[in-house]
Design a protein around this nucleic acid. Structure first.
Lengths: 232, 232
DNA sequence: CGTTTGGTTGATAGGAATCAACTTCAGTGG
DNA sequence: CCACTGAAGTTGATTCCTATCAACCAAACG
């Protein structure tokens, strides 16, 4: 591992405040690797051998049943994923695949548990990560149980607008199939939903979206920090 | 607090392995209280001042938006709830109310954080609790995104049958409105869903349910440990 | 170029919510 | 003891939302 990579990793929130000893041990046991797009890295049901940290790129967490699959979350740097499975030493509940070329740090589960025994700062970072992940999925769950598909889409657009800080102009970060799955709808319905949003001054061509009236869109979406605000 | 109560609390998973010092400090700062049925204890959006532990009874975690509310989880002894809000020192994402007369331990958030700094065993118990809660809601999320209402009901019945070990005979632990909300449907549709299940040899009167053909029900429900198995 | 992939559009069916009426039953008070 | 009342649950009619199936389009690519 090169030194510039090392310092990149050292800055990850997961390692904030941990001792150099802990960090060295963890990193020595780990693998930093690039993966091409659309590679399946984790299968639900498999034993949790590694904790994954997304250093670069984007990962999709998804689940399958009844011949369908659905996106549960998209993970971007600098987040870990499937932490809970590692902590309980059980099997993964979700599968994971790369959406784009991605760089991941793979830390053996056993080393995670060792480090937690010896370094309280690391344990605290783990706790924080875990709590953050929990709150994220609670929000997603509320989003799905309390809102219609159009409301979810409208809120998604507003959230992206905030993240991209685009003065009402945003670029969809994923293809529309993935977006549809994340929002819990079919691609066909996403298309129609965008159609419906035209009357709220939403223009779309390709991945470029113009939100010409944030007020109109907000009136429809009724965003709330208890569902829509990303925390750090 | 009486000594029998104290030993009951000492046995909670949350305190497994913690030092007596930590335990004493936490308990001295806490409140053990009975609450009558249908009392709202926590409001989403409020700052997380306490960690709650259900010692006896049953709590409902729910969320509101758009004039609707939906049940996110039912919490029974010996589980804590709203842990993530305490750990991140932020606001509650869910509201909570008692379903029945319940005994709760209220631990001030500040004391939780202090105890985590001084007792690694306590931190580990917290991590485990947090990971467990995360996996529980991931399963619930998958349940909702991948299954129809009838499938969710069928799986719920099968799960209860396993828990109650009732040889195909179970008693619904809650009223049907609550059950409907937990399963993400209206009471009317729950009624109809039970009607549909008659052709799978499910008999129901009041809260007594007879599952006369677990095979038929399983064929419909297609249960999987990746959604339906409760972990400890 | 033809072929593939991602996306759109239309027609239709199905699942679930809503609205309304009705039943049952427990609790209350005359 | 027996009406009243209200809550919980059921049933029916209808509407609405979403999925499905099918056809079609357009840009991308070998």
């Amino acid at each position: 591992m090169r030194s510039e990579e090392l310092s990149l990793i050292r800055e990850l929130p997961l390692f904030a405040g941990v001792t150099n000893t802990t960090f060295d041990k963890l990193v020595r046991a780990s693998y930093l690797q690039f993966f091409p797009p659309h590679v399946r890295l984790v299968n639900e049901g498999d034993p949790a051998d590694f904790l994954y940290v997304v250093v670069e790129g984007c990962l999709e967490l998804f689940a399958e049943a009844n011949g369908h699959d659905t996106t549960v979350a998209l993970v971007r740097p600098p987040s870990s994923f499937i932490l809970a499975a590692v902590l309980t030493d059980s099997t993964y509940l979700l599968s994971a695949r790369t959406l784009e070329k991605s760089r991941l740090l793979l830390i053996p589960a056993e080393n995670i548990r060792q480090a937690m025994d010896s370094d309280t700062a690391f344990t605290h970072a783990i706790v924080h990560d875990m709590a953050w992940a929990y709150r994220t999925i609670v929000k997603s769950h509320k989003n799905h149980k309390l809102r219609s598909t159009i409301e979810r889409l409208a809120n998604y657009l507003l959230s992206e607008e905030k993240i991209q800080n685009g003065q009402g102009r945003i670029t969809l970060p994923h293809d529309k199939r993935t977006l549809a799955s994340l929002l819990g709808m079919t691609p066909e319905n996403l298309s129609r939903a965008f159609g419906t949003l035209r009357q709220y001054q939403v223009e779309i061509n390709g991945r470029e979206v113009h939100l010409n009236s944030l007020e109109d869109l907000r009136a429809l979406a009724k965003p709330t920090p208890l569902i829509d605000d990303a925390e750090m």
